[in-house]
């Protein structure tokens, strides 16, 4: 606090937004814990095909369903398939759906929202009216119908879920672009004669990245939840593939005799959703200190 010029200058040079956010994020224990769990989980899911001693579909009918033991840490299902292996393979599918569908919603939402906010005026109000109308559609129901009728394949699942989740993203990006548009550095860019495309992609969208990242981390758990929900109803991932929703569905059917088949996938799914939500909350607090908790 002394008025010495040297440290003052250093302090001013100090922290970029990213560094600042990183420091705030590290102080948030729930977010760090969530992030840690996710990294471990993702790592295990990624290395599974090279590490697992069992295959996700290899059956061992003589063994049948056994409780957790040394050879099968989380037990096996009725067909003698190793549960841990199936959970990790299911994790690959669940994470893949989570990331891919979020990417789809990101692509549609950011483009749509940025365009609406950038063009403004009539175009903007029409585009946002469309979003308002789409918001009132019963999407869960439409996705169920879509999955029943257009076959149960994974790519379609990404597209369907992504197409549902882009609306909020569009709203957030539009709001952000609208407020940035009036800032001096954008005016400067206009004065310098930059093309509209350059202003949009080089200046407006990169400066909206904070809220976009935050909303992405909150979209991933929603998407994974929707995938699990569909698989639980028998409309998502199909056997012999595995996903967490599907494992829970299969586990429920034999819950009375083999409770571990429902308990372990449930714990893994809940833990992942927890971690993603904690990380998302932490990122929001870190990247956008003004935004409230609720």
């Amino acid at each position: 606090m002394d008025a010495q010029p040297q440290p003052m200058l250093e302090a001013e040079k100090g922290s970029s937004l990213g560094q600042d956010a990183w420091r705030r994020l590290r102080q948030n224990r729930a977010a760090v814990g969530g992030g840690g769990v996710l990294i471990v989980m993702l790592f295990l899911c990624v290395i599974t095909p090279w590490m697992a001693p069992y295959s996700y579909e290899a059956q061992n009918l003589e063994l049948g369903s056994v409780a957790p033991r040394q050879a099968h840490w989380l037990g096996t299902d009725q067909l003698g398939r190793d549960l841990l292996t199936r959970i990790l393979y299911g994790g690959r599918v669940s994470f893949m759906v989570g990331f891919a569908a979020t990417a789809v919603s990101l692509l549609i939402g950011v483009t749509y929202g940025a365009l609406a906010g950038f063009l403004g005026g009539r175009t903007d109000s029409v585009m946002m009216r469309v979003v308002d109308i789409l918001y009132t559609l019963p999407f869960t129901i439409l996705v169920i119908i879509l999955m029943v009728y257009l076959g149960r394949n994974l790519v379609l699942l990404f597209l369907a879920i992504g197409a549902v989740e882009w609306l909020t993203m569009a709203r957030i990006v539009r709001g952000q672009v609208m407020s940035l548009r009036k800032k001096e550095f954008i005016e400067a860019a206009v004065v310098l004669g930059y093309s509209r495309r350059r202003i949009l992609f080089r200046h407006l969208i990169p400066n909206s990245l904070g809220p976009i990242i935050v909303y992405c981390t909150l979209t991933i758990p929603q998407v994974m939840l929707l995938e699990a929900f569909l698989s639980f109803l028998g409309l998502g991932v199909q056997a012999p593939m595995s996903s967490w929703g599907l494992l829970i569905k299969e586990g429920v059917e034999t819950m009375e005799d083999f409770p571990w088949l429902v308990v372990f996938p449930s714990i893994v799914l809940s833990l992942t959703l927890f971690s993603l939500n904690f990380l998302g909350d932490g990122l929001r607090d870190a990247l956008d200190p003004r935004a409230g908790k609720d």
Partner: peptide, 22 residues
């Protein structure tokens, strides 16, 4: 409350059945 928001109902339901019914 955080748990209530994160745990989906198709997980909560079977677990409740397991504990309180079975």
């Amino acid at each position: 409350a955080m748990a209530g928001i994160c745990i989906p109902n198709f997980v909560l339901g079977p677990l409740l059945v397991l504990v309180f019914a079975l």
